[in-house]
Design a protein around this nucleic acid. Sequence first.
RNA 1: GGCGGCGUAGCUCAGUUGGUCAGAGCACGCGGCUCAUAUCCGCGCUGUCGCAGGUUCGAGUCCUGCCGCCGCCA
Length: 515
Amino acid sequence: MSERRHITTAIFYCNGTPHVGSAYEALAADVFARYWRRRLGRGRVTFLSGTDEHGDKIRRAALAEDLAPKVYTDRMSALFREAWQGLGVSFDYFVRTTDPIHERFVQEMLRRTHENGDLYFRDYEGLYCVDCERFYPEKELSGGQLCPVHNRPVERISEGNYFLRIEKYREQVRDHIAKNPGFIRPERYRNEALNMLAEPLTDLCISRPKSRLDWGIELPFDSNYVTYVWYDAFWAYLSVPALAENPGDMDAAWRRAAELIACSEHFIGKDILKTHAVYWPPILMAAGLPLFRRLNVHGWLNFGGQRMSKSSGNVRDPVSYERAFGPDVLRYFVMRELVYGLDGDFSEERLVQRYNADLANDLGNFASRVLAMAQRYCQGEVRAVPGADLETNLQERVGRKIEELDFKGALEEIWLLIAEANNYIVETEPFKLAKDPANAARVEQILANLLEILRMLAGFLEPFMPVTSWRLFELLGLNPESDAAKAASGEGLKPGHRVKPPIALFPRIDRKPAA
RNA sequence: GGCGGCGUAGCUCAGUUGGUCAGAGCACGCGGCUCAUAUCCGCGCUGUCGCAGGUUCGAGUCCUGCCGCCGCCA
């Protein structure tokens, strides 16, 4: 089958540093991407993240530090890229909206949309909030002339601008959502989207006059204007990967973009549901492209019960957690603790609890005791063919849960296997049998089975905990690259294979480390 | 103003279409084992499932009202 997936995180607006909330999104998308890579093969999956670098707010932030916008965004964008890399986020593309390739693609899109006749020019006068980068109708303003979001004065601005006809596509979009239950998920967000599409839409203003703001992509048909930042940013999902293979051939790139969007799984936060459920589909249609495959909407990550945000000052640097607790720990925590789609709470105390209970006591200790026994009773050698009676459909159950975005449930399934395996040790008592040489064969069989379970665990864990998975494969004397792929298949350990002595993968944390 | 969600053991939460669903994990207590990171295994513990009514043979599970949080739209 020619099934493909194009998985994207939001294109992060880089006027601030990455925090645990944005990391959560990148991590969820990464688990999903890693899962599909194993399922479909590397060549059939692309995974993209990136930064959104145009617009007034960025220009002002740069100005405040006395920097040229591009110099400023070079720096900010690198922070995101490095943070994701530090967390093991395995993107294939990290797209910057200031990338010349992206800009070229956006201009092509503008040309096509213009030719299709869905752009028009008109004068517009309204009350504008610089921070929101949008106009407000008078009745939405709070306290007379204040922006309802930022509580600061709006400016009256009159200017000609280009608009995109989106009301024209509203019925079509609504039908699509109504007829495709999985298109927006979880379902609560699908219902909200349908609600938003119940009333007529105001056409989207997609330009800014250069006289007011020149930090943007120039319209190919009017050099006095640049695109509005939102309109530009959506296309980061497609621009660079579409042009990557055929830098010179716009028609080929356009066909590639059509393929990519049709298999796109967007991961976004609920704050940008409207832009993605209501605006993005008509924008695509106006450009003559198919719709994306799915929108996967997640909730907020609170910190100690409070909304995590730059303004409340409780943002945390996600990478510092990896440094303090070790690789994969933040990944494990947010995937295991939070229900995708719902708001969740993040706290260091919970993280330590999870770490000790699940990682140190269950997973780490299990690996340790199995490898120790293999060493002590079999000199680190596999001496029997692992039993065929081992759990076989776990693979399927875990996979289904990941596809449904039930990351928490998938991990619970995996931990059930650890519990069963621990139980198996208690029931069979290999450490007792080993005291009598007559039981050697039985002990060797039990250990072969246990090592095989460890091997399967290493495979199941890879999407969630890539470093841990890697280490487990190494401890098992296997090659993380080549052997990981067959982890869950029947190709298990063979007699004669040697494994290594245990190391403490997750040392218990007795006191809170200074993070 | 309109629409929607949430409120279940000390803590964090699961709970499909109404009938062994009153649950899981953590924490706590007792017992077992000693291969293992004082880890593992077994048993136990606490709840009027926000409040008040209603439908039903039977309701966390449906309906109404109320209280307390929180979203979205306008």
